[in-house]
Design a protein around this nucleic acid. Structure first.
Length: 416
RNA sequence: CGGGGAUUAGCGCAGCCUGGUAGCGCGCCGCGUUCGGGACGCGGAGGUCGUGGGUUCGAAUCCCGCAUCCCCGACCA
């Protein structure tokens, strides 16, 4: 993509109504635009990051047997009356609306009531199990107080997977598989080193649920972390009995703020029993299916990476999710420089290396500042100076040093 | 939902106390000089001052209501 054609622009100042680092940087860089509190538009570069995160999550869900589908935002009232979740006293963050004929609808905040009745038409045998449909869709939650940029939205992108098993054993095995897949996802997103499995409230069907908490002062949760064991307990369930139960010691626990970047929990038969998801097991015995639910906020993950991996100059995307791999800066309008830069742009594209080509006629300082703010992993500079030397100058976003390279070495390095 | 703060040009702000129909910086447009870390000079465009009402000869400014945004708290299958 040529920067001269990109409709978004960077800004020196962040808007006054955004305090959180993630929102300030993402808005300054032109990745998102705020529409209302907790609701953002994703602009071309921001959408690339969001899609890259979703792609990684999809790959890992597919790898453990997840099957992607897409369910609607509009939800039927009657289904939620069956499960007991229509009442605002039970779920207080519903967005509700009506059909022209007056029938009430809700905007989906979670999709158990959608999926379970649907699967009654498809699951015929225990041999179909375990089954784990998932989706990446926009969720709506009427938060009393949205805050912290992308961290807590009223409309946000989420991956939600639901598992159906014939036995507790089968459920437990799948649950553990998902837990491992989540760890892989956070590693790939570049926040694995700061993300910890955290024991949280399990509700009525299991002792604990599990959250994945990323250490950050911008987080809303307080956790107690045993760094050596890489295990944490959410403050909401912390007590001596729980600490003992998990084989931890209070003196090893460190109190920290963290962002909940994912959670997985057992649902038991809460959403299978009301919808009569009953199947004969191997022995011919009627069994109500056991469910699990597994969420990752895709947009929140983007905010978390922005929050964690940025520095005083701007965003610092890991290669795995960056909007482009290379920022190609052409300095000056010298004919040889322009020709060389245009040529490299085409060659990088031919190698399938994603490149942002800064072909604007602006001064060097502005290009460097933008390359840093946008957080592109590699910066390549072409100028009259570099043409006299080995032609190209390469710099990593995370390092200060530069190196000069000739074209074959440069392409080889960037293609790696 | 309780408490606090804010709303004036695309962005950041001043003006309000002491009413007389708006100003600065950045950005944007034009010309020129510059050209490796957000240059400089000259000229220019751009605002029903969040919204509804009230007071007044006259309201960005004073009074009342509402909306939106931010922060703290509460809430968060």
């Amino acid at each position: 993509m040529k920067l001269s054609k990109l409709f978004t622009h960077t800004r020196k100042d962040a808007p006054a109504d955004e305090v959180s680092k993630n929102a300030q940087l993402l808005i300054r860089a032109g990745f998102v635009n705020k529409e209302l509190a907790g609701v953002y538009s994703y602009l071309p570069l921001g959408l690339r990051v969001l899609n890259n995160i979703a792609r990684i999550v999809r790959e890992e869900m597919d790898a453990i047997g997840g099957q992607e589908l897409a369910m609607p935002a509009l939800q039927i009232k009657e289904r939620y009356e069956i499960s007991g979740r229509w009442d605002d006293k039970v779920v207080d963050d519903w967005f509700k609306t009506k059909l022209v004929n007056g029938a009430e609808l809700g905007l989906g905040f979670s999709h158990e009531e959608n999926l379970s009745p649907m699967l009654k038409n498809f699951i015929n045998s225990y041999k179909d199990l375990p089954l784990a449909p998932y989706q990446v869709t926009t969720k709506f939650r009427n938060e009393l107080r949205s805050k912290s940029g992308l961290m807590r939205g009223r409309e946000f992108l989420m991956k939600d997977m639901y598992s159906y098993s014939i036995s507790q054993k089968q459920h437990d095995e799948f649950y553990e598989t998902v837990q491992k897949a989540y760890e892989t996802i956070y590693k790939r997103l570049g926040i694995g080193h700061e993300t910890f499995l955290t024991f949280a409230s399990g509700g009525s069907f299991s002792k604990y649920s599990h959250e994945f908490q990323t250490l950050s002062e911008a987080g809303e949760d307080t956790i107690y972390l045993d760094r050596r064991r890489k295990l944490a307990i959410n403050k909401e369930v912390l007590n001596d009995a729980v600490i003992r139960d998990l084989g931890l010691r209070r003196s090893d626990l460190e109190e920290l703020r963290a962002i909940e970047v994912g959670n997985i929990f057992s649902l038991g038969t809460k959403f299978s029993k009301p919808f009569e998801l009953v199947i004969n097991d191997q022995d011919g015995k009627e069994t109500t299916l056991i469910m699990g639910c597994y969420g990752i906020g895709i947009s929140r993950a983007m905010g978390t990476v922005a929050e964690l991996l940025s520095d005083e100059k701007g965003l610092v995307w890991p290669e795995s999710i960056a909007p482009a791999k290379v920022y190609l800066a052409r300095l000056g309008t010298d004919a040889a420089v322009v020709k060389t830069a245009d040529g490299l742009y085409k060659k990088l594209q031919a190698e399938n290396i994603e490149v942002l080509y800064d072909d604007r006629d602006v001064r060097a300082g502005e290009k460097f500042a933008d390359a840093d703010l946008l957080g592109i992993p590699y910066r390549v500079v072409i100028s009259e100076k570099t043409l006299k030397d080995t032609t190209y100058e390469l710099k990593k976003r995370t390092e200060d040093k530069t190196q000069n390279l000739a074209e074959p070495e440069l392409i080889k390095m960037l293609a790696a």
